[in-house]
Nucleic acid binder design. Sequence first.
DNA 1: TATTACAAGTTGTCTGCACAAGTAAAAAAA
DNA 2: TTTTTTTACTTGTGCAGACAACTTGTAATA
Lengths: 361, 361
Amino acid sequence: MEQENNNTMPKYSRLKEYLKEQMKRGVIAPGSQLPSENMLAEEFKISRHTVRQALNDLENEGLIFREQGRGTFRSYPTSGKGKIVALVTTYISEYIFPEVIRGIEEVLSAAGCTLLLASTGNDQKKEAACLESLLQQKISGLIIEPTQSARKNVNLKYYRDLEKRGIPYLMLHAYYPELDPAYIIMDDEKGGYMAAEYLIQLGHKKIAGVFKADDRQGVKRRDGFLKALKKYGVKITPDLLGAYETAQLYSYPYQFGRALFAKGEQPTAMVCYNDQIALMVLEALRDEGIKVPEEFSLLSFDDSSLAVASEVKLSSIKHPKAAMGRQAARFILDMIEDKVIKVRQVYQPELILRSSCRALV
Amino acid sequence: MEQENNNTMPKYSRLKEYLKEQMKRGVIAPGSQLPSENMLAEEFKISRHTVRQALNDLENEGLIFREQGRGTFRSYPTSGKGKIVALVTTYISEYIFPEVIRGIEEVLSAAGCTLLLASTGNDQKKEAACLESLLQQKISGLIIEPTQSARKNVNLKYYRDLEKRGIPYLMLHAYYPELDPAYIIMDDEKGGYMAAEYLIQLGHKKIAGVFKADDRQGVKRRDGFLKALKKYGVKITPDLLGAYETAQLYSYPYQFGRALFAKGEQPTAMVCYNDQIALMVLEALRDEGIKVPEEFSLLSFDDSSLAVASEVKLSSIKHPKAAMGRQAARFILDMIEDKVIKVRQVYQPELILRSSCRALV
DNA sequence: TATTACAAGTTGTCTGCACAAGTAAAAAAA
DNA sequence: TTTTTTTACTTGTGCAGACAACTTGTAATA
């Protein structure tokens, strides 16, 4: 693997590769004895010292163990147990991540693996630091939610490094097309389209939208949203289209909500990037004295616990959350076991109707 | 260390110990070059091969690195960086845990450490499995929230094992007194007392309470609650005192809420184990047609995001959440660095007033 | 001055040998 | 038959030497 089997490779390395291959193929079963050092030396026409060099390496890698006077044996592979799978998300406590993480942890712990957790705060510098420290650990696989996925990623080299080391990784929620990785995502564009279409079919003509600008999910949802407006001939008004970045998360949505009616436009409905945003907009609308859903329809994404916690139960586009996490964990385990090379799954959006939208009469 | 420095020890082992000692004393500084193999061979009157045997071991232990043509160098000790701290909580996604976890992760990643996460679902069997697999990993420290802390713990042996291995651990939210461990907890009894006292001072005379029975936090909060009732001479009615265990989490609180007024008692206020329970009770009260806070006062614990998500903003006893997580992480890091042996911190409860309670006139 | 070639020193690979220490089974002795 | 000893094997430790591959500083060259 490391090099070709040509003669440029040192003899002890060739022996190592040979033995590894034999183990992989099952010719040398776990627990069974390897040929003695002298036999290997004779067979490969190399000195015993060179054989020992190879065996020392294999011993350090944990593939074999030796007992003085008895012989050398293949060690019992721990069969996936005790492996570490790393998870890097943008956030840990916010939004729907806790549930996704729970789903992942569920499957991993059931498989006897442990979960190494890190978060980036959606900051590429922190993502670099995370990957840096994860690469120091002996991780068997990585599930990662890309950071500011709509921007150019500066940390591609870490992913290349993972590939070099043969550590599989799986991207969640979004992915960098340059890497052509395994991924599990939502069909966010379709989701955006469905959201807008639903409001249009309720009779809304002036529909606002606010989306996250630095995540691919946000861009996709907006694209689908605009696509639906265009398809149904609904006018797209710049004033009604909001965009924010991570840093503005706690200020922009409320302000946008307060400013919605200031500019003469009189929107009757709105699509929000997610429930978190929708609640902030809801707060703004309440402060403006506008009642939801009587005077204004609100539709958002992710169907999080927030959607049912408020007095107005939000209609929202479902996110599989824990199920997606479990699926991601199963996939990465399969990838670690070499069962599958590259998985790709796209969840179809589904609209959960509650009481935040109303048909215009 | 492994043996005495007598002659029974192999030569290469003696050289290893010698070099380790030199590094420990700082004679060989990190990054600095070691004597060449030939020099060491000459100095110790051993063959170069034997020197290499020692150096190979040290290289595998990560203490030195070698560069062909340049020499052998002491590697830079990662000084606390790259260490793994494990965290075992009852839940990951529910309740306030995400925020606690976030706080912990914040501090750890800033210190260059990584977080190994596992959850028990408040099940002692799963706790055993967690600890089992964690002990296989090279963890430097452990933060753990005890499982069903009000019950007798069957997993004490794992903690003894940790102690034997010199791996520090810190208990969160509750602790097993048998272990006399380091801990960070809330003063739950005082919190329960404060909650009841507040409602009593508002003029309530019939106060219900529902608490978790299998966690020490629940028991303590109930104890404080009852203590206050007794002190102020408020009658304690068994029908108004609810207790549930983990398995009943999603059924009991709602049923208890619905049944509150069936038995002739007419409580005017209630203390709930936490916000999550309070919301379920709130749902039950709504279905019973009872308005909060007009007809009924509700007070709960933890000041979680749920407390402000509902239409009735819950008054709640504050939980430090992320701050507590950060503190826990700082403590465990200190313990790993041997700066402190055993830390103990008890957070004082604080009542956050919102709009779920009203004074009786 | 800048470049190239060389020399000295480093670790990497490899051979061959010898004996020690430990295991397991066969052989010998009780 | 049971016990002890021997023997033949295993891996562990150690020596001496050789050349390859690589780095670095110095000397020779352009």
